[in-house]
Design a protein around this nucleic acid. Structure first.
Lengths: 185, 185
DNA sequence: GTATCGAACTTGTCAATGGCAAGATAGGAT
DNA sequence: ATCCTATCTTGCCATTGACAAGTTCGATAC
């Protein structure tokens, strides 16, 4: 064991998990550092030691979120539909992470860990989807953007509750016929 | 004149404009009621009289935002491309409003004025785009959702700075070839 | 085994904030 | 001239983010 069992055990991890939980409950803004400290059972200033300030906590959440996101996208394989559905599945299953990573004003986007994980995700989204529009010239680089846009838009609209209720309660199933409009012809 | 020129003149309006300005500068969360009061040159508790609390201010912003949004969409006519481009144009030109209305956890979505304006916008987005997929059955109601998703996704990604810089600095021009993937065949 | 070191955490403090209560002001109705 | 009511102010309190200074305790050296 390295420094795993200190005063608290693993406070850094506990704070991140408390933050993710709080964000899941009421969004990326409706929590306080002191609340995270209370959830972790430590003093009100303990989080500052590990993260500095609020943005520090959110930077850690963004770094972890982008890593999980990149993993999920890479694991989806080469099929564009599958990547798109994985995108939406991640947004729904890991909502707090998804909500944070696309709001860079909340954290420090220049953080090395964040930037690296984001680059991984970007690669899948802007390059990894060759064959997006098989009947179009391969150098049409707007096709990946179109695919990214439609799945991102669906996911974000779904999470915000803007979509009509008739779509049911399974976002991935609901998204399938929607994103099919883009590529299956 | 009704109650237009009271102590302040039109504090309600001034507070809303101050809020929109503050949101434009640093997002829907990075401002305080007291800052709005200072901007309007009134005491720290004046906003509470008109709006109750923070959510009250944001509810007023959402109501005004949804109204402007519905106006913009309705004014775009029947052509689907034009509606889509108007959507993106609104998101960019009225960013603070756009950022608020799709974050219902920030305000009171049940507010009558908000609900009415939102219904107007929803009508254009989920019904008003007949002919979306001319070669598909008219009862395919996922087509409007696809159109909504792609323009919403593009707009949101653009605003969050997630899209590659090579797309240039004119979001409407950049969006044109992207959303063309969906309908022009 | 004990002295030292440094990271992990606590305690104390301050200005700023949201929200509430009570008071002051002034325009409009009678 | 008087009352009435919406508008706005003053005063207050619990909470918060951030910082400074102090304390605990595991690890390392000898």
């Amino acid at each position: 064991m390295s420094g795993d069992t200190y005063h608290h055990g693993n406070l850094r991890r506990a704070i991140i998990e408390a933050a993710v939980g709080a964000i899941a409950e009421s969004g990326p803004a409706a929590w306080s550092l002191r609340e995270l400290a209370r959830r972790a059972g430590v003093s009100h200033a303990a989080p500052a030691h590990h993260f500095g300030d609020r943005a520090g906590v959110l930077t850690a959440v963004a770094a972890e979120g982008y890593t999980l996101f990149a993993n999920a996208l890479e694991a989806a394989g080469d099929d564009l539909h599958e990547v798109g559905l994985a995108y939406i599945r991640f947004a729904v299953d890991h909502r707090p992470y998804f909500e944070v990573i696309f709001r860079p004003e909340l954290y420090r986007p220049d953080d090395p860990e964040v930037a690296a994980a984001r680059a991984r995700a970007d690669r899948v989204l802007t390059e990894g989807v060759r064959g997006a529009a098989p009947d179009r010239p391969n150098d049409d680089r707007t096709a990946p953007i179109a695919a990214w846009s439609i799945v991102h838009g669906f996911a974000h609209l779904w999470l915000s509750g803007a979509l009509p209720a008739r779509l049911g309660d399974d976002p991935v199933a609901a998204a399938r016929p929607v994103i099919r409009h883009l590529f299956d012809r």
